[in-house]
Amino acid sequence: MIEYTAIIRDTAKKLLKDGKVDVFIGYKKGTVPMMNEPVVISDPEKVDTLHWDSLCGLNLCNYLTKRKDKIGIIANGCNSRNIVTHILENQISREQLYIVGIPCTGVIDHRAVLRAVGNKEVLDVQEQGDKFTVSGNGFSETFDKAKFLRTNCAVCTHRNPVIYDEMVASPVKEQEGVDPFEDVKKIEAMDPEKKWGFFTKMIERCLRCYACRNSCPLCYCPTCFVDESKPQWVGKSIDPTDTMTFHIMRAYHCAGRCTDCGACERVCPVGIPMRQFTKKLNKDALEYFSWEAGLNPDARPPLDVYKPDDYNDFVK
């Protein structure tokens, strides 16, 4: 995917020079390898900082919320679905956006890479087609990218952008025969006690740093429920009950909106797989409402509208 970088830079330069957009939002190389970061560019001379490879794991929609200017943005599958969600929720209007679509082949899980090299310090990553080479002090190893995809990318079925104004390359083939909800089904088969044990253990390490919330393109409330103090819905300590309440509510706020972009898991400093919460909701949204978030800018989300034939079995 690294070959898109030059095209992205050219496009951004053209857009900024022609005055079609005021700012261009993309990724740049991070100061630490494998940690590419978002960047907002307004000067056409600075487009060379833009970068795209298989380590661009954050979601750019966070930087769109309530902006007033004209924005150029790069969007792969999940980014574009979040743009649609933003448009639906009136956080940005379609007219303001110039979307440069990227057919994505998945993002590399930096933790898996670190594990593979025995947690040695990685100093450089080079991508060549569907392989990549990591090197550091005294070692250099080449891996298959397909084996190191993030778990959400491995089961992704929407790799191409849903809406775009131009594409940097022709669409890639969507994955077939993957079951995105395999792990959810495994948990569903447990009894309540086991489930509770599983999730309690999972969030045990949580520091309550709220990085998952801040990186999430859906979390843009001016005051988050965790910061409210009167009434205080959830305590600020790392008491297990508080942590669980936080995770339940954070996930529930994403019901019918989550695009499984994986930003929350990527930013978690202690590596909690909190997508297990949101994935259950995604599965329910699909089963009860035949809904996948962010695919259609003209359809209202299921929790937003009433239909006489809505799922109703839980009501006595």
Partner: peptide, 10 residues
Amino acid sequence: SPKFILAAFR
């Protein structure tokens, strides 16, 4: 709100 329900359980 779902918060109320969680608050009750809490």
